[in-house]
């Protein structure tokens, strides 16, 4: 078909967490511009399987930009060259015939490579488990109107809750810092009345877990915000800093 592309891929291949990896060159031919980036990988994997070779492991699930599973670092940017999309929503029309595309996994101490392009992001789960929830006693749900919430706060909480936990913020940050993710999770709860009772312990515990996982520190470069597929704002980081300082100073716990 006309308009189809021949591309060279340089893909990170790594057998498991313990071994060292390397970039390996692959040629893919007759790639339709209408394919998604992951479909292009499917084509390559089909070819590798037919040739009796080991297919490339990569994370993917919903393929419609809402699950946060896909995690490719494409030509030096998480989720590739477009703004506000995940890898699965990146289409081959964003590339040109003859392009060389470098694909690497998220790189962070806290995100060890499982195999090839798949990284272990359970550090995020442990941060959530450290405080990213509200404790609710069982019983009948009360009437929603009993909890007045301003529209502005509801909107802002919703914008923070849009975070899909893909880890692009960590991948983009020169310090591999997880501040944008953690601050989104802190904000979505602390902006709402239900989040108030555990506000102080939440921010302290989640930040402590984030540090324990070995993520870097935030130096406010803004790379995370620019690369976030869900447009999570840096103002969430400021909110978390504010709450953290307040909780550290105000809390009676040591």
């Amino acid at each position: 078909m006309s308009g189809n592309m021949n591309l060279t891929l340089k893909v990170w291949r790594q057998k498991n967490t313990k071994t060292n990896g390397e970039l390996v060159d692959y040629k893919v031919n007759e790639i339709s511009p209408d394919m998604s980036f992951l479909e292009m990988f499917d084509v390559l994997n089909e070819k590798l399987i037919t040739e009796g070779k080991d297919p490339i492991a990569f994370d993917h699930d919903c393929r419609e930009g809402i699950c946060g599973m896909c995690s490719m670092h494409i030509n030096g940017r998480p989720h590739g060259p477009l703004q506000g999309v995940t890898t699965c929503q990146l289409h081959m029309r964003s590339f040109k015939d003859g392009d060389t595309i470098v694909v690497e996994p998220w790189r962070a101490q806290a995100f060890p490579v499982i195999k090839d392009l798949a990284v272990n992001r359970s550090a995020f789960d442990r941060i959530i488990a450290a405080g990213g929830y509200v404790s609710i006693n069982t019983g009948n749900a009360q009437d929603a109107n009993n909890l007045p919430i301003s529209k502005d706060n509801a909107d802002e909480a919703f914008a923070a809750a849009a975070c899909i936990g893909c880890g692009a913020c960590v991948a983009a940050c020169k310090n591999a810092s997880a501040m944008l993710f953690v601050s989104a999770k802190v904000s979505q709860l602390s902006l709402l009345p239900q989040g108030q009772p555990e506000k102080q312990s939440r921010v302290i515990n989640m930040v402590a877990q984030m540090d324990a996982e070995g993520f870097g520190s935030c130096t406010n470069t803004g790379a995370c915000e620019a690369e976030c597929p869900k447009g999570i704002s840096l103002s969430n980081i400021a909110r978390m800093n504010r709450e953290f300082i307040g909780a550290e100073l105000g809390s009676e716990k040591y």
Binding site: R107, S177, A226
Partner: peptide, 28 residues
């Protein structure tokens, strides 16, 4: 100490990293 800690947070560097696409050079 911040530089050291942040350097350790990414022991294996990217082969390609396009920092200019998302942040200012002086911030980095």
């Amino acid at each position: 100490s911040l530089w050291k800690q942040n350097n350790n947070a990414r022991p294996i560097k990217y082969a390609v990293q396009n920092g200019a696409a998302n942040s200012k050079w002086y911030s980095r």
